[in-house]
Computed example of a mutant assay.
Amino acid sequence: MIEFEFDELFNGLDRSKKHVRESAKAGVTAAVYSLLDESRNEAPLDKGVLRTTAGTNIEVEGDTVTGEVFYSATETTKSGERVNYAVILHEMGEFKNPTTPGTRPKWLERPLKRDAKKYNRMIASAIKKGLK
């Protein structure tokens, strides 16, 4: 009779899965902070509110790691409505008179698209490093 105990195998697989998840979180975190830095350099700068309200959020849910960069500069309109003017500025066509040269709309979307491969490499590298 030949017997094989699966418990150790499954425990090892669980540990590997945990390491991959932790490593992926580290890679996503690095990529998100890189995107935050890049986007801040292109974000409009008047009083600095927009850049100082930027932030990040990293979540792990099951086998999914999600990272986001956000800008949340809100103002209250004359009618009392709260508006996130970061979204309005981001989606503008072009700034006619930017207060700071080099700033422009799509400051978050532009570096995300431009550097997507770099961010993927950062995540893959972190996972590879975590599995060693």
Score class of each variant (00 low, 15 high):
Met1Ile: 00
Ile2Val: 12
Ile2Pro: 07
Ile2Trp: 07
Glu3Leu: 10
Phe4Ala: 05
Glu5Arg: 00
Glu5Thr: 14
Phe6Thr: 11
Asp7Asn: 13
Glu8Thr: 14
Phe10Val: 15
Asn11Thr: 12
Leu13Glu: 08
Asp14Ser: 15
Arg15His: 10
Lys18Gly: 14
His19Phe: 11
Val20Thr: 14
Glu22Lys: 04
Ala26His: 06
Gly27Thr: 04
Gly27Trp: 03
Val28Leu: 05
Ala31Tyr: 04
Ala31Val: 02
Val32Ala: 06
Val32Tyr: 04
Ser34Asn: 12
Glu38Asn: 10
Glu38Trp: 06
Arg40His: 00
Glu42Met: 11
Ala43Trp: 00
Pro44Ile: 00
Lys47Cys: 09
Gly48Met: 02
Arg51Met: 07
Thr52Leu: 13
Thr52Val: 10
Thr53Gln: 02
Ala54Lys: 02
Ala54Arg: 04
Thr56Arg: 05
Thr56Phe: 08
Val60Gly: 05
Glu61Ala: 14
Gly62Tyr: 03
Gly62Trp: 04
Asp63Gln: 14
Thr64Leu: 09
Val65Lys: 03
Val65His: 03
Thr66Trp: 12
Thr66Gly: 08
Val69Pro: 00
Phe70Glu: 06
Phe70Ser: 08
Tyr71Gly: 01
Ala73Ser: 07
Ala73Arg: 03
Thr74Ala: 04
Lys78Phe: 13
Ser79Arg: 06
Glu81Val: 02
Val83Tyr: 02
Ala86His: 03
Ile88Arg: 07
Leu89Pro: 01
Leu89Thr: 02
Leu89Val: 02
Glu91Ser: 12
Glu91Lys: 13
Gly93Gln: 08
Phe95Lys: 04
Phe95Met: 03
Lys96Pro: 00
Asn97Val: 14
Asn97Gln: 11
Thr100Arg: 13
Pro101Asp: 07
Gly102Pro: 07
Thr103Cys: 05
Arg104Thr: 08
Pro105Ala: 06
Pro105Asn: 05
Lys106Val: 01
Lys106Ala: 14
Trp107Glu: 00
Leu108Lys: 04
Arg110Val: 15
Pro111Gln: 04
Pro111Trp: 03
Arg114His: 12
Asp115Pro: 07
Ala116His: 10
Lys118Glu: 09
Ala124Lys: 10
Lys128Val: 12
Lys129Pro: 06
Lys129Cys: 07
Gly130Asn: 02
Leu131Trp: 06
Lys132Pro: 12
Lys132Arg: 11
